[in-house]
Computed example of a mutant assay.
Amino acid sequence: MLENDPTPDSWEYSLYIPNDPRAVPVSRRTLRLILTLHGLIHLADTAELLASELVSNAVLHTKGPAGLRVRYRDGILRIGAWDTDPEPPEPPGESEELADAENGRGFALVRACADVWGWQPLSRLGHRGKLVWCDLPAA
């Protein structure tokens, strides 16, 4: 916490990443470090899983740059992945439907592990796209 920080209980980080599968482990490790530094290590395993799914989708299904966005406010950790595709993500199927599916399990994991998830149109660095996010309570 910085001495002059007017909101010591809220913070936000953004990590801009290239369209490269190696960005997924970089995002996970960065997220773990952020959570450790802010005393939220107890959220790290679930948060890493969620970030991996969101960032993987951003890298696999788009051609442009992407980003990891992590925000903490009012006891809620929000993890988001920005990508250059303005189309909404496919909603997750039911767990039973996904047992033999080749893909599509990622959002089912997000739905199962996060309190809530959603998406919104968003522009970054001159690129149109979307932010797909999910929330974890810190308690």
Rank of each mutant, 00 (worst) to 15 (best):
N4K: 08
D5G: 03
T7V: 14
P8S: 14
D9R: 14
D9K: 10
Y13W: 14
L15D: 06
L15H: 02
L15K: 12
Y16R: 12
Y16D: 05
P18K: 10
N19G: 01
N19W: 01
D20T: 01
P21N: 06
A23V: 05
V24N: 09
P25Y: 09
V26L: 11
S27P: 14
R28E: 14
T30L: 09
R32F: 00
R32S: 01
I34Y: 09
L35C: 04
L35Y: 04
L35A: 08
T36D: 13
T36E: 06
L37P: 00
G39R: 13
G39D: 12
L40R: 11
H42P: 03
H42E: 07
L43Q: 06
A44R: 05
D45A: 09
A47T: 00
L50I: 06
L50F: 01
A51Q: 10
S52W: 02
V55Q: 08
V55F: 13
V55E: 14
S56H: 10
S56L: 06
N57K: 08
N57L: 01
L60D: 14
H61G: 03
H61A: 05
T62M: 07
K63Q: 09
G64M: 07
P65Y: 08
A66N: 14
L68W: 10
V70K: 05
V70Q: 04
R71F: 02
Y72M: 03
R73H: 15
I76K: 15
I76M: 10
I76T: 13
L77H: 03
L77A: 01
L77K: 10
R78E: 01
G80L: 02
W82P: 12
D83P: 08
D83K: 13
D83H: 13
T84P: 00
T84I: 11
T84W: 06
D85C: 09
D85T: 09
D85E: 11
P86C: 04
E87V: 11
P88Q: 10
E90G: 00
E90W: 00
P92L: 04
E94A: 12
E94R: 15
E94H: 15
S95Y: 07
L98H: 06
L98T: 11
L98K: 06
D100G: 11
D100H: 15
A101S: 15
E102F: 02
G104D: 03
G104P: 03
R105N: 14
R105Y: 15
G106K: 02
L109F: 15
L109G: 06
L109C: 07
L109D: 00
V110G: 06
R111T: 02
A112V: 04
A112T: 04
C113D: 00
A114Q: 02
D115T: 10
V116Q: 08
G118K: 10
W119G: 02
Q120F: 01
P121L: 08
P121K: 10
L122D: 02
L122V: 10
L122A: 14
S123Y: 06
L125D: 15
L125I: 04
L125Q: 14
G126D: 09
G126Q: 09
G126H: 05
H127A: 06
R128C: 02
R128Y: 00
G129S: 09
G129M: 03
K130H: 04
V132H: 07
V132K: 07
V132F: 03
C134R: 04
C134A: 13
C134N: 08
C134T: 09
C134H: 01
D135A: 03
P137Y: 03
A138V: 08
A138G: 14
A138L: 04
A139H: 02
A139K: 05
A139Q: 07
A139D: 04
A139S: 00
